[in-house]
Each structure stands twice: as C-alpha cells, then as structure tokens.
Write a protein that binds this DNA or RNA. Structure first.
Ligand code: FES
Ligand code: FES
Lengths: 164, 164
DNA sequence: TTAATAAAAGATATTTTTGTCTTTTATTGA
DNA sequence: TCAATAAAAGACAAAAATATCTTTTATTAA
C-alpha cells in the first residue's frame, strides 16, 4: 500500500474501542438516580428530573424515560405539578437494588449463561458454568443485599460519588 | 381510553424484553468458537469457519469477522486455502481466556465502575465500589485462570455444550 | 501454472440501544 | 378557576452492535 493510499484508507472499525460493562448504560443511570433520590428522600425532599440528571451526570430526557418506567412499575414514587418530583417512600427505600436492575436489564444477569447458551443448566453446562455460577451468585448477592436506601448516610456525608 | 382505541394502541416498548448479559454477543461467540477450535487443535485438526459456526450456533459471516480480528491480534492461528482453517498452536492454547475477552470487549469488565463512573477509584468510590470490586475480581480470576485449552478433555468427552 | 479452496477484507444492511424533542396530563397555589 | 409547574407519554433521531453479502488474497494440490 502506497503512502498516498494510506492517507485515504481507514481501518473499517467494526470493533470500535468498544467497552462492555456489566450493566447497560440505562441501568447505570437508573442505579445512580435511585441512590440520589433515595438520599434526598431520607432528608424528606422530592427531586425534579433536572436536578437528578445534573447531579448524576446523565442526559435529562433519557433519564426521564428511565424513571417513568420505574414509576410505572411502582419502584419509585412521583407527583406531578408544583413541588412535585421523584421520591421513595419507606417501603421502597427498603427494596433491593436487584428490583431496579431486573426492571431495566432483565434477569439474564441473575440466571443467564456466561457463554450465551439459551439456558444455563447443570445437566448441559457450558465450559465456564462452574466458575461463572460463582460470579453470578456474587452479583445476585450484591444486588439483593443492597437496599435502595442503604447508602443514604454515606451519600449525605459525602463518602460516595454519583457523577463522573 | 375506549375499547376501540385500545385495540389500536400499542405500548411504545422503549424497554423491550431486553436482557443484558455480562459479555457482548460478539464476545460470547468468540469464547464459544475459541473453545471449539481449541478442542480440535488438541486433536491436531484445523477447522473451517463453516464448521465452527455450525457447531457453536452462530451466524457464519459474523463469526468470520470475529475470528479475523483475533487472527490479526495473533490470538488464533489460521491458514488460507485447501486444508486451511483455524487452529491454536501450543503457546496460544495456554493463553488465558482473558486475552480473548479484552480483545473483543475491552478492559472495562476488569477495571470499570459498576455504576458507570468514568474511573473506578478508591479515593472517589461509587456506593457499590466495595462489593463490585469483589465481583470484578472474581471475573478477572475466572478469565485469567481459564486457559483456552483448559476444557479440551471435557469437550472431547462430551461433558460440555457450546451450542444452544 | 492452474483450478479449487478457504480465509481476509471491504462494503452494506438491520436491529438495538441510547438520546432528543414535542405534546399531554396531573397537581398545586394564587 | 386559572396560570404555573413538573411528570408522563409519544414521536423521532443518532449511534452502536449485530449481521450479511461481495470481492480479494493466499495456499494447496493436481
Ligand atoms: S451453562 Fe453456561 S453458565 Fe451455566
Ligand atoms: S467506583 Fe464504582 S466500582 Fe469503583
């Protein structure tokens, strides 16, 4: 390939600098928002979408969609109009984070096969099955044992970050 | 909303029955393919893309792209022409599966923040940091301690599945 | 040295995820 | 009861991931 050619030839980046996280971006926004709203609820306040989006550094209209979904599923509370906003009642504050994750990302992270087989099963395991089960169990444990309100104190005391 | 209306009104499924896995589909295909080719290499054979795609149940042209990438990165060996195909040499068979994953999905799964913060850090942790670190470490351990050739015997003996 | 073979590369298409914009509905306080 | 407010809903747009098709290059064996 000549120099001139190379100037006009770009690698067909089918595999961009992709970076794959455990949770979808949607779910990451959801979790950050939930923790932020929980903290405010602990202080007895409701929060508007604009403030939430600013504080967790997420696109506002997109986050609105996410919270709408959580609201429809009664995982978060909201009221319209002046002094309205999002908040959590006492019951919701005690819900596990797992409820948020499964509402957004589904249950694959709790039950799915690491190699993408349709069903994860003991009788027909993929090679990674035994080790992957441990990973899945730890994720499940983490999400089941983290209530939505668990970090309220830490957040109020400034121990944790929710914005990049 | 009237009955007639409801007949023609469909919920705008912005959140389809999404299911989020730990690895991208691309990476799942890659891992399944790698294990399949490794097994064949152990038996001294090269395998064509068609056979691999059939055996691991993946779209053939898409898998071809994936293996091309791994080939460019010297993670898998290949030869063109008659009797050609993909295979692993002894060195590659001993590579950790982590090399495949990071080539395809990047390093976020090893180092990224569970809540999607730009950097995961001890000094500015997100609420999930402590627990998420454990998950990440277990994934890292799993992928570093699994060589590409680790399951050859199990696969030959039919203990494992690679197709759905 | 040629025909057949099989991977590599390139171009294109589809689907899903992520993100934006506009309109509607509910609530509140004046 | 009216104007202001804020979430809900709906329609639309952009980007990324997934998938397909065609052409090119390298290798082998006859
Ligand atoms: S079968 Fe793959 S993780 Fe269980
Ligand atoms: S800061 Fe979020 S996992 Fe470390």
């Amino acid at each position: 390939m000549s120099f001139i050619d190379s100037v006009y030839t770009f690698a067909p980046e089918t595999f961009a600098d992709d970076y794959m996280a455990i949770f979808s971006k949607t779910c990451e926004y959801a979790m950050r928002a939930v923790f932020y709203v929980a903290q405010k609820s602990h202080e007895g306040q409701k929060v508007g979408i604009k403030e939430i989006a600013e504080q967790i550094n997420s696109p506002e209209p997109f986050l609105a969609k996410i919270l709408q979904k959580l609201s429809r599923e009664r995982l978060i509370q909201s009221v319209k109009g002046p002094n309205g906003g999002f908040y959590f009642d006492a019951v919701s504050l005690n819900r596990p984070l797992a409820d948020i994750v499964s509402a957004i990302d589904g249950n694959d992270i709790f039950t799915g096969c690491g190699l993408g087989l349709t069903y994860c099963s003991e009788s027909n395991p993929c090679p990674l099955h035994d080790e992957f089960k441990k990973v899945r169990n730890q994720i499940t444990h983490m999400l089941n044992n983290t209530t939505i309100g668990k970090f309220n104190m830490g957040l109020i005391k400034g121990k944790f970050t929710l914005n990049k």
